[in-house]
């Protein structure tokens, strides 16, 4: 067992940081119904991976800037015409991914680590990745402490929030920017294809068991830590891919919860 902790210490730190991120960003995503937007950013960010490779930029930097750009575009579209945004979100999702494929194809040479961006690997995180996760966690905590009543007001009744004088457009944009940063920060750990599952499941369960928002965030963090910790342990024990095992652990948790509630 001590071998497990020695071997997995950096991954356990990543799991801790990731759990906090999942709890806050996932709760904002779920309550504000931003899941589709977050998924579009996650998949569209592949364009940033490709662009960074093509231009020879650090991949984390390229992906972050590209994701923030997508976030601003999505925030504008969904704020201006919320009724017709589904089609546009889907288009941005597909265009981002297509750009990524195109840019990578145009880049000379072959990169064997590209699958890592699609499916992630929590065991291979570097100190820079952990630092980025920690910074995004801090930003999320600060936003939560400062704007949580505004986030909730928007999620519950946007018109009322606007009548109260809340800058609805700014809070909406801030939420999507935070989601973009959260998605990018977790891509290396869980991959852009799998990240939405992990952002969704712990807050979904927590939402149903909590009476208030902070309780939901706290419970979601505990559940995320439970799923990532258990997934890591199972992957070590049975020699399985860590990220996939974590996602499947969360999915089993979700199924058990759903069955148990009936």
């Amino acid at each position: 067992m001590s071998e497990f902790f020695t071997l997995f210490a950096p991954s356990l730190i990543a799991a801790l940081l990731l759990s906090l991120l999942i709890a806050i960003a996932g709760s904002l995503m779920l309550l504000g119904r931003y899941s589709y937007i977050a998924a579009a950013i996650a998949h569209g960010s592949y364009g940033g991976v490709g662009l960074a490779l093509l231009l020879g930029l650090p991949i984390l930097l390229g992906t972050t800037l590209f994701a923030l750009l997508l976030a601003l575009l999505l925030a504008y579209i969904t704020y201006r015409s919320p009724q017709r945004s589904d089609l546009l979100i889907g288009t941005i999702w597909a265009v981002g991914m297509s750009l990524g494929i195109l840019f990578i194809d145009l880049t000379p040479g072959y990169r064997s680590d590209l699958l890592g961006y699609l499916f992630g690997n929590i065991l291979l995180l570097e100190s820079g990745d952990l630092l980025f996760l920690a910074v995004v966690d801090l930003l999320l905590i600060a936003a939560l402490l400062l704007y949580r009543h505004h986030f909730l007001a928007l999620a519950y009744d946007r018109d009322f929030a606007q009548v109260r004088g809340i800058r609805v457009g700014r809070i909406h944009t801030l939420t999507i920017l935070l989601l973009a940063l959260s998605v990018v920060a977790s891509i290396r750990a869980v991959g852009l294809i799998l990240v939405i599952a992990l952002l969704s499941i712990p807050p979904f369960i927590a939402e149903r068991l909590s009476r208030n928002f902070l309780e939901m965030v706290f419970l979601a963090a505990l559940l995320a830590l439970l799923f990532t910790g258990t997934g890591l342990f199972l992957s070590y024990w049975f020699d399985l891919p860590a990220t996939a095992t974590i996602i499947l652990t969360a999915a089993v948790g979700f199924m058990l919860f759903t069955i148990g509630r009936r």
Binding site: R164, G165, I166, S210, R211, F213
Partner: peptide, 21 residues
């Protein structure tokens, strides 16, 4: 038309009336 499982108490909703810029 909010998510019916939103973790908010009645008091939290009414307090939104006290919110302002």
């Amino acid at each position: 038309h909010q998510n019916s499982d939103m973790p908010l108490r009645v008091l939290d909703i009414v307090l939104q009336g006290r919110l302002q810029r």
